[in-house]
Write a protein that binds this DNA or RNA. Structure first.
Lengths: 109, 109
DNA sequence: TAATATAGTTACCAATTGGATACTATTGTT
DNA sequence: AACAATAGTATCCAATTGGTAACTATATTA
């Protein structure tokens, strides 16, 4: 992958630059359990539009978080998989999972 | 605090609902080192406008993440502090800090 | 007397994001 | 011959978000 230029000095801001987005975190959540096809992602990301899903996947691929594998078939089959760096987002995901659970215990009905 | 209704079933989505926003994470980052005044936050959140900072602080207060203390002075003095639940966002913050650092090591110039 | 400092609020405008819809390509199926 | 299936792309419109600038209050300071 190509090096990215001008990342912010604060690493938290770097993470936000690459992942500071509802859908991207949910895409990671879904790919943490393994490779998925485009259609599977679309279905499990309830309500995301095709356009938005495609554009997030492209950005994440460019940033080295996922890989895209196209099969020479008709109808098309495209699979998305987390890279090693993408996998390492599991810590962030898990922290968010834990915190959300705690918050719900405390404050939800 | 009042219970919040209709939190999403997935705890990750709950976290995103409350924190899925660049500025909110950075506000937490800044408050993790202790209580801050409005003006201090504004200065350290480089580039945030007064309007946006105010509105994020209000939402976070409503959600039980921070407390707001107004001193009866002129000119006004208002301090913001993380609540206990707000403090517990440290795990999320730290995971993002770690991941950003790793990412920069691998991919930045 | 006028300026300064702080923490806002309000109104308006611009930009970004997101959604809906229609369209494409091609092979296999009915 | 028409249709289904998949992973898109292109276009247009709507909504949300964010920025700028002006305004407020009032005690203290020059």
């Amino acid at each position: 992958m190509q090096a990215i230029e001008n990342l912010p000095p604060c690493p938290v801001e770097t993470t936000l630059l690459l992942m500071g987005d509802k859908w991207k975190v949910l895409i990671v959540r879904d790919l943490l359990s393994g490779t998925k096809r485009f259609g599977e992602l679309k279905k499990s990301l309830n309500g995301i539009s095709q356009k938005v899903l495609t554009s997030h996947l492209r950005t994440m691929e460019k940033n080295g978080l996922i890989t895209r594998k196209v099969y020479a078939q008709v109808p098309p089959k495209v699979e998305y998989t987390l890279t090693e760096v993408g996998q390492s987002l599991k810590q962030v995901h898990d922290a968010m999972l834990d915190w959300g659970s705690i918050y719900k215990l405390k404050y939800s009905k």
